[in-house]
Amino acid sequence: MSEPAVALEGATIRLGGRAILEDVSLGVARGEFVAVLGPNGAGKSTLVKAILGLLPLAAGKAKVLGRPPGEANARIGYLPQRRNFDSATRIRGIDLVRLGLDGSRWGIPIPGLPGTKEKARRVAEVLELVGASRYATKPIGELSGGEQQRLLIAQALVRRPQLLLLDEPLDSLDLASQAAVAALVRRICEQEHVAVLLVAHDVNPILGFIDQVVYVAGGSAVGGRPRDVITSETLTRLFGVPIEVLHASDGRLVVVGQPEAPFHHGDRHA
């Protein structure tokens, strides 16, 4: 069996002298779908950036696809937190996906050169996989949030990564689209045997699809199977205030008393 996609042991990350995350341990196996949850500013994006090697560890050990963070980024598909294309953006989705494949290459792309057809075939294949073929040649600014998100996932997938880091891809989507995108990610996980780390706000739309959940709050993180982690005891311990988890009849979880960190724009990128 190959080594895990992500392995953190006692990882501590400091920003400007302040510990954002302290003593975090986390393991993501190949082909596993992991959701990272927690309030705004808790350090979810920080965790993703540390896995990418963009932020150094102050303490602890980290291996990403068997290498130190930052050394295996060519095998990681990354979808940063952001980003909607407004209606003035006159770019086709298919071109955006293609950029994920060879956008960092210098020189003039000459049609007919060896490899051109193969690249076009790969782009078509990945568009088919995410179900975006139908609208890939329209200007991306004219598409809905869910359609844009599918194209961005295709862009992150086009180089056949072994690990997919999706930072808030469900943000600004309606509930039905959130569930649809989560189902898509689950399917990709299984078909392509990709490990996925998905940062999200709300566990409910994705609860049925994930293998593992990691809760980030108050500078630390707790991971495990959703039913084990999302309990009154665990969350109360993690947040340091009384929290109650209720089970609705349709299987949804309702977390009561969860403190939302004060909302600052800067926090969202922390």
Binding site: P80, L99, G103, S104, Q155, A156
Partner: peptide, 17 residues
């Protein structure tokens, strides 16, 4: 042209690549 196009429309992902 290609990296410039990438950086112009999608700077975060371009930087990560």
């Amino acid at each position: 042209a290609r990296p410039l196009f990438f950086a112009s429309v999608d700077s975060d992902v371009a930087r990560a690549s």
